[in-house]
Write a protein that binds this DNA or RNA. Sequence first.
RNA 1: GCCCUCGUAGCUCAACGGACAGAGCGGUUGCCUUCUAAGCAAUAGGUUGCAGGUUCGAGUCCUGCCGGGGGCGCCA
Length: 579
Amino acid sequence: MFIKDQLTQVIHQVLLQMGFEVSTQEIHLEQPALPEHGDWSTNIALVLAKRVKMSPVELSSAVAKTVEDDISSFAFAYIKAVKAVSPGFVNFYLYNSWLHQELIELFKQGEHHYAAFDIGKGKAVQVEFISANPTGPLHVGNGWWGCYGDALARLLSRCGWMVSREYYVNDTGGQIRELGASILAAKRGKELPEGGYKGEYISLLAASYDEAAQAEVEGDEAADGQGAITAVEKAGIWAAKRILENIKTTCNRLGIIFDKYYSQREMEQSGALDQSLKDLDKRSLLYRDEGALWFKSSSLGDSRDRVLVKSDGEYTYLAADIAYHRDKFILRGFDRVIDVFGADHHGHVPSLLAGVEALGVQKGSLEVKIGQMVSLVGGIGTKSDADGSNLSATGAAVKMSKREGNVVLLDSLIDEIGIDAVRLLSLLSSIDQAVTLDLDLVKKQSMENPVYYVQYAHARIASIQKFAEVRGHAGLDRVNLNLNTLNVLRHPRELDLIRCLIELPDIIMSAYNELAPFKVTTWVRKLAGCFHGFYHDCRVIGDDVALEITEARLWLTEAVRIGLKIGLELLGVSLPESM
RNA sequence: GCCCUCGUAGCUCAACGGACAGAGCGGUUGCCUUCUAAGCAAUAGGUUGCAGGUUCGAGUCCUGCCGGGGGCGCCA
């Protein structure tokens, strides 16, 4: 049991003794920023004051006094002093052994259970992310939200959910025709059609679009029992498949492995869409107007009604998306679904939520996280920018557009700074934050990227542990680890390091609650910082280091290694043994 | 015009409604016979866009402005 939980019990017990009806949930403990405010602090007196009609100062003093008077009666031996302080905080000062005890707890639980939770209880959650249209290669923004989605999935998994990662492939509709038209135009050396796609990849694809390719598409379509399709559609379908393969390769490079790439075309061909419409119709939520089929989404929180089937008989994107979510919830039975959208699609959210609600899915089962736009400044790709670098000479932010072909490719960025740097960089700040990425700076700073700071801590630990073996320090004996062994850890650097390390369970909990994996990044950087300080001031192995100090510090080092491992694995960043 | 979102140091970003708003980069200055200097330490830098309100307490919550981004299709 963590010290924090034990201390909560103590406070609870005291409050009950004093005759106050409170639940343990109301008792909030935090580690104060300032050392003089103690190891733990609670604001319970401030919260309770009004209810019990006492002044906060009076109440906090009473609580502090009661704790002090009864200190020997608690099954809790770590309290050194308790102080009430204006405007009503109760601060607890503990013996250092409480930190050592936390380390023992960490080892007891081990890397698989420490800071892991069973909130999901094995229920199924699906995280859908990236889902970029297969009309062009992934750009940096896709990668940004992609790393977020993947890290979120890892976080959910650590919190007891059975996670599926999924990519929704919009491989049908007008955009695929436009893609096909662009390919054909490029092949014939004609002007690109209005609204066509312009990137370099179009001409590359066009060059390899031959009769065999056409035959391949025709064969597939015949197998699917579809009717005749136009030359434009053929080219579009073919190109989309090729592009999707390219997208998969890029995702795999980044360590983002989807359980499923879900094809919109296949779903439509399966008749799932019609079934979805029937379900909505059963609830009397559809009506016809001007030849189109409408969804009464305004009755479910949307700002207006939406068209599901156009007057030309084609389905809208929304119709397909509702059917897709029907598939997720009703057919596949996910208990929870989290969609990660770019901010450019957030207008779609109320309609989708209305659709999902209309299908009878419990409210709240679908959560949508909106990734703010990633704007780019500066240039990248020193060799040739032909494959899509955007760069304005002025260095002004350029809006990325697949259609305009001025995207900065995710692959280029990975080539430039590496996988770990991309992952950590994209997980540095909240997804709610619209970030500006200065590509010149990123390139220039690639050697001093924050990721190296963290990885370097790990490499140093690995180095110490190797050296320990060389010097013949026996393996760590976990069974007999006790407070006496760790008691010599008293250096401020050591205590700070432990203090930081043991925040991990709380960090993961709040990262989970807020769907904010970047909190893990922030923590991992802080931990690395504490470790570097410790490394600098506290030698682990050496002729002038006492044996019991070496032993205790080896323990501490191992604990930090576990913490770094948990953190970096959640972020999908590798842990180098040497650098 | 309406809806969503963001506004914190020169730059990029942190801060469960808590105590004096913190890091990194960039600037200045120190530290390598020692387990990796991709490191450590010191120093400078702020009226948290503005104005009200709620609260014992507001960068955080509410209202209104101002500014950036996104969205308001029988596109996806």
